[in-house]
Design a protein around this nucleic acid. Structure first.
Lengths: 144, 144
DNA sequence: TGCATTTAGATATAATATAACATACAATAG
DNA sequence: CTATTGTATGTTATATTATATCTAAATGCA
């Protein structure tokens, strides 16, 4: 079973400058992954002089701080919606993004078994995951 | 424990036209993920008139047929080096790519537990993985 | 105040990928 | 054989995604 909890990866304080705040709001309110240049279009409604670097800098900051995820198989960015088996557990957990190549929907999930096996594999390889996240590309139920 | 076996995902017969063969050889002999335009440069040493579509078409074919993997977090392509816990098992298995963001090295791995948990998650979501593959970005042992 | 650090503006361009249309070629049904 | 179909390729142009570079403003703080 999988339940939704707050994002425990996010830092307690973020430096949300106007452009970062605006980019975050745009992506968050979309409720689905958004492309950088679609974000830029929206951003320009608010910050007229916004340019590609404006967006990419804000995205870098928000992804680095685990507020947004980069969905690599879509070149897109989505709001983090962490899930975990038990919100009381303080263990670091590994989330998985199931990304639909047809409609673009992404389901973010996590559970203890997945975390355990990924930690075991990364541990034995000496590999340090940079987002405690794995990504899986496919087709969602609705699109099949 | 993880051991190397032949690629059981690959079809028994491939239509390896000259450009597909050449692209495959280039990526295979590189022994690491290669970018499309680096492949193109190499390809043009053999097929002078090769253009971006030449490469992308060959890559599409080879990825679709599970001979190459697309490494999404690097926009790169690598030769499939399937691993599985036991080569006798005929079950479909899920591989994982651990991709180093510093040196570009990718370790391909698989084991029974990972396959089981991913299959369970995709099953309960009605999600159909298009490559039986998950991807994990981070930093490898050598780079730490 | 003066200095270091972080953030943002602005221009240009690099890097990645596909659209669109024409051509060739092989397999095979009529 | 020849018409048709499906697949693969050639070619040009362009779309999409992302970053480099340089300047300047804002911020924190010794």
């Amino acid at each position: 079973m999988t339940v939704t909890v707050e994002n425990t990866h996010a830092p307690t304080s973020l430096n949300l400058t106007p452009s970062r705040r605006a980019v975050l709001d745009i992506v968050k309110s979309a409720g689905r992954p958004m492309k950088a240049y679609d974000i830029l279009s929206k951003l320009q409604e608010v910050i007229k002089h916004a340019k590609p670097p404006t967006v990419y800098r804000a995205l870098d900051y928000l992804v680095t701080n685990h507020v947004l995820h980069r969905v690599n198989n879509q070149n897109a960015f989505m709001h983090c919606q962490q899930h975990v088996e038990c919100s009381k557990q303080q263990e670091e957990r590994v989330s998985i993004l199931f990304s639909c190549q047809l409609c673009g929907a992404v389901i973010e999930n996590a559970n203890h078994s997945l975390t355990a096996i990924i930690k075991q594999m990364t541990g034995s390889l000496g590999f340090k995951s940079d987002a405690d996240m794995v990504e899986c590309s496919g087709v969602c139920q609705d699109c099949r």
